[in-house]
Design a protein around this nucleic acid. Structure first.
Lengths: 207, 207
DNA sequence: TGTACATCAGTGAACGCGCGTTCACTGATGTAC
DNA sequence: TGTACATCAGTGAACGCGCGTTCACTGATGTAC
């Protein structure tokens, strides 16, 4: 009984005054704006406009602008991680194809959500250093490490596995960047992303 | 005689009112600020403050803020290109070591001038699409292609050479990113940058 | 060498703008009786 | 079921700020005579 009352009416409770789930609404608005105008073009005011709410409203849910962006990026990382796990389904365990599939998903995320992707790696300036972000990043990397270990016939993350995983990550990360800019992509000539990824996986997993 | 008069007194003509070479001064100020506060923290006003000049002065030399940044980034690309050429000196022609040397220089630039490096690849948002930038980028990439061709025993840039070059670039670019953030670098365990680069060069140049 | 003049790099004050954030408020909601 | 009340999500007006850019100006410089 009491629990039933606490359960959220899920979404459509837009009463005009109360929003229902403004926190989620603002995060989504933030995401859209970051994709549309780039990570730097985003402003709190814009997000409020898009969410149809006064400029003071966000401060009931977020401490400040940084917290708003961090929340959005964190959600993005969770999404990215889930995508990568899904990408593994049906691919034979212990084969380089699994590493390729992870790479492909990584690249796809970068291409589909370039703004969020960028913010995830704002690293140069240390604006976004929420420990939750750090954690989520490590979690995602550990997916790669596990697959590399399986391919190499290791039962644990040896230094060699870690090193290969890091190199694969470097490659895929850089590739994502170059692919995000058509002018740069053009410099690679004609190629299939999947071919490139599987080529590299094989090379990096060989002895 | 006439030419002698046109030759610049090179630098030290700070008369108080006239600056000598404000254009260069502003570009340098821009560079410093971009490194100090990150690509987004930069403002024209800041640059003026740093150069010791009124906020209106830049508009005698640049159309607007974007042109100022573009000029600075273009200089950075020239510097990067020269560094890479220098890095080849004394390294035996046709060996993977040359490719490794180029990669090392690429990484070093990213680590020494992270702000400029970032701006060079602002690509996601197409803020900086000066054709001169595009050209400079292609020029730098062609250095890599030439070395790859030599290593592969080719006399011209075949599709295969281009593809390998592009993959090497992807790797080195991604590595630069990960190395720029200590938290990400840590995930790779213990390693020497040179070892990683030469490892990859060998793998990517093998048949 | 000395003077008159054109040039134009740099001034400083001002502009309009959108931003992030705050404030006292209001009205919709859920709960206790 | 009906009423009184506490809660707190969202309002709207206002703030101070630094920004990019403009304007009419000024004064240092190089050149012509």
């Amino acid at each position: 009984m009491e629990n039933a009352k606490k359960a959220k009416p899920a979404g459509l409770m837009k009463s005009g005054y109360h929003h229902g789930d403004l926190r989620a609404g603002l995060i989504e608005a933030t995401r859209q704006l970051v994709e549309e105008k780039g990570p730097d073009g985003f402003s709190v005011s814009d997000a409020c406009r898009l969410a149809g709410v006064s400029t003071a409203a966000p401060y009931k849910h977020f401490k400040d602008k940084a917290e708003m962006i961090t929340a959005m990026v964190t959600e993005g990382m969770v999404r990215h991680r889930e995508n990568m796990l899904n990408a593994l389904e049906g691919v034979p365990v212990g084969t380089p194809a699994r590493v390729t599939a992870l790479g492909r998903q990584y690249v796809d995320f970068a291409l589909n959500e370039p703004g969020v992707f960028r913010l995830k790696f704002g690293g140069f300036t240390d604006r976004l250093d929420d420990p939750k972000l750090q954690e989520a990043g490590e979690g995602t990397f550990s997916i790669v490490l596990r697959e590399v270990a399986l391919c190499r016939g290791e039962t644990e993350i040896t230094p060699d596995v870690r090193r290969r995983g890091f190199m694969l990550w470097s490659f895929v990360h850089g590739l994502s960047f170059l692919l995000a800019d058509p002018k740069l992509t053009k410099l690679g000539g004609e190629f299939e992303i999947d071919d490139i990824l599987s080529d590299l996986s094989v090379r990096m997993l060989a002895d």
